[in-house]
Each structure stands twice: as C-alpha cells, then as structure tokens.
Amino acid sequence: MSLAAAVILVVLSWLWVIGEDRARGVVLISAQSAEHVGQFIEDLLGIGSPSPPAYLRPDRWAAMAGLAAETLGMSVLAAGLAGAGALALGVFAARTVAFGPLRPSRSPLWPMAFFVTRGAFIVSRALPELLWALLLLFLFTPGTLPGALALGLHNLGVVGKLGAEVVEDLNLRPIQALQRSGARPGQLLAYGIVPSMLPQLLTYLLYRWEVIIRSTIVVGFVGAGGLGQEFRLRMSFFHYTDVTLILLVYLLLVFGVDLVSAGLRRLAR
C-alpha cells in the first residue's frame, strides 16, 4: 500500500518536473547545458580573467575571518537558544510527567502543559529556518539575532521532542526515591530530572550544531549577515572567484565544527 503510493508519487513528480523543465526550455542533458556547466566552473576558478582569483589572495582570506566568526557565533547562539528552550520545556512534554508516575500533583495544568508544549514543538519543527527568519523580521531588524532565533526556533522543536523522549525513558527509581523522601516538584526537577537528561540532551545538541552550521549560511540569504549574506552579494555581482573563496571558508567551518563537536561529545559521555 505504502509502496504503491510511493511509486505513484515518484512517477507523478518526475512527470511534473520534466514537463516544467521542457516548458522552460532548459533541458538538463544537452550539449548546451554541458557547455554552461563548463563555463560556470571556469568562472568559479577564474580561468581567463586578467586579475588573480580572490581565493588566492591573502587579503581576501583575511577579510573572510570576520564573516566566518559572525557565522560561527550565529550557529552557537542558535544551538544555545534551542538547547535552553528544550531543557526548560522538554520536561513538560514528557508523558511520564503529564500523565504517568512523575506527575507532581493532580492539577489539570500538567496535561494542559503537555499538549501546549507538544503542539509548540510540532509547529516550531514543521517550519523551516528560512520561514521563521521571514516571520521574525516583523519583530527584529535584520541581523545576526533574528537569524540565530530562526535557527534556534526550528531546532527547538527537534531537540525539545528528543528531550521529552529522554525524560520518558529515564530510570524512575532514583527520582521516585527523591519523591518519596518529600522533594517538592522544583527540587525533583533540579536534582532528579534535569541532571539525568543533560548528558543525552547535550550530545544531541552537539549533533544538531553540525546541522545548524550548514544552515547558518542560508539564513544569511535573507539578510542575517555572515557568510550567507556575502555569498548572496557576490553571486548577484557575478564575482565568482569570491564565491569560490566563500565556499572554501564555509567548508572549513563545517568540517571544523564536525571535528569540535565530535571531541566535545566525547566529553559529554
């Protein structure tokens, strides 16, 4: 059933894509498009241009450092905001807290908080970073902050859901021991639940950071600054050797974050 639906979807999608491609007269596989790609690669490398390509000029590399730092800062801020939000809200989204053995009181507020936080996680996760960025520009002036918030909001849903699952899978014994010895809900949270969910949440957050750094360049497209904004600028001025330089810096940043995140994850274990 699912397989048949998937096959039909694939066929219909490709029919639409190919039809639209024909209508626009691009036609993917042709001698002409091969020539265009060749030309584009030559432009990126700066072949046939009289001035030296930007990616070989030390002064251009130095100029990139500030933008790279800004992009890195934006990604760290986004990950931090998502992590803080998930830590604060994830507990309420756990079934064991809302309905199960960890429920602190009979108050109907706990199930209500469950549905509100779960709903918020679904919405925040469903909307991609760029749509969040677009909506946040109602409230903020374009810059690093709305970019980081947009990245953070999308990731809040992703990390928050995981946080809730971590709480649901917690070993209940030590927490119930605290409960029985008369700990109040706040103390239960501070000494029982949060410390036990922290290592897993941090590990996952570090994984997400690797995803976030890749998307950080993209929120720059809507004016959030950093490498992304520079990329958009250089693309629209056809400064293709600068584009190559930005891509190289971006790759360094992405691989660097992968390495650092792997190292930090070892500390979290």
Partner: peptide, 29 residues
C-alpha cells in the same frame, strides 16, 4: 559523500541555477 553533504541544499541549488538556468530540475538535483 562528505563534500556533497557539507554544502547546504539551497547553496547547491543556487550554484546549479547559476550554471544551468532556472528550472525545477536544478532544485531536484
């Protein structure tokens, strides 16, 4: 694989559009 993954899909899309022109096929690629 590492190189393909490192670059965000929208960056790829922009590069493909610059090389091939505006068509859904660029987004798909």
């Amino acid at each position: 694989l590492g190189l393909l993954r490192a670059i965000h899909e929208l960056v790829w899309a922009w590069l493909f559009i610059a090389a091939l022109g505006l068509s859904p096929i660029t987004g798909v690629l």
